[in-house]
Each structure stands twice: as structure tokens, then as C-alpha cells.
Simulated assay, not measured.
Amino acid sequence: MEFCPKCKSMMFPGAGNIECRKCGYTKEQGAATEDMVSKAKQDDREVTILEENFDQGLPTTAARCPECGHNVAYWWLRQLRSADESETRFFKCVKCAATWREYD
């Protein structure tokens, strides 16, 4: 995750660069940033999936993996619906790297 040096807002990947949606600042996207995230289709929506070892800085929690049954997973929150609805919690198994989400 990168933040804008001008306005300190979060920057998002764009067409070959990273862009600030608030002030419009752009920075050329490096190879390391391109490998950090990927998009996956789920229920006709794109969902951000963490790749490789970039998830090691995330917090862990006790959550049973539906694939391998391991009881520890990384987790993060993502706002998928409108702002007045709750965030969706995603999990990634620390053992097999399977990714799933929690429904409210």
C-alpha cells in the first residue's frame, strides 16, 4: 500500500502507474507493486487477492480453513458494498494460502 506524498491519501493502481484519486498525483508503478495484488472474479465482482509473501505483515486470527482445515489465517477488511453497510472480512490460510471471505 502506498500513500500520496502530496495529500497523504491512499494511492491505487492505474494504467501502468499508481494514482491518487483525491489530488490526481501519479507515480510510475514499479515491478514490486505489480506483483502485490491481483484481481479475482467472485459473484460478478472483482476482489483483491494478496499474492506471494506480501501478506506476512497482516494480522492473524483463529479461523478454520475450508480447504486444509488449518486453524490460523491472515485477515483484512475491504469495503465492497455501499458505505452505510459493513465491511467484508477476507481470510487467507497461513498454511495452504486458500482465500475466502466472511459473510454477515
Rank of each mutant, 00 (worst) to 15 (best):
C68F: 10
F91A: 02
E51Y: 09
F54P: 02
E52R: 13
M11E: 00
D35F: 11
E46C: 04
A97S: 15
G30E: 13
C96L: 11
Y103K: 15
A32Y: 04
Y25M: 00
W75S: 05
E87L: 01
C96M: 08
F12A: 11
L77E: 15
A83R: 02
E34L: 04
E52I: 14
E34Y: 09
A97M: 12
T26R: 02
G24P: 01
T99D: 01
F3L: 07
C23K: 01
C4D: 04
H70K: 10
A98T: 14
T26C: 05
P66M: 00
G24V: 00
D55P: 07
T48W: 01
A98N: 15
W75N: 06
T88L: 00
E87T: 03
E46Y: 02
D35N: 15
S86P: 14
V72I: 14
D104K: 13
S86T: 06
R45N: 06
A15K: 14
Q29C: 08
A62Y: 13
D55N: 13
L80D: 12
W75H: 11
G24H: 05
E85T: 02
S38P: 11
Q42L: 03
P5Q: 04
D43G: 01
G14Y: 07
V94Q: 14
V37L: 14
F3G: 01
G69H: 12
M1Y: 14
P66E: 07
A40V: 04
F54Q: 04
T26Q: 04
C20Q: 01
S82E: 05
F91L: 08
E51S: 10
T61S: 09
H70R: 10
Y103G: 11
I49D: 01
T48G: 01
D104V: 12
M1D: 15
P59E: 14
E19H: 06
E19G: 08
N17D: 05
A98L: 12
F54K: 01
K8D: 14
A98G: 11
V72H: 12
A32S: 10
E85F: 02
C96R: 06
N53E: 14
A83T: 06
F90R: 09
D35G: 11
K39G: 08
S38A: 13
C65T: 05
R64P: 03
E85Q: 10
F90L: 07
G14H: 08
H70G: 05
E52P: 08
K8G: 13
G57M: 10
A62N: 15
V72F: 08
T88I: 01
P5L: 00
P13C: 00
N17T: 03
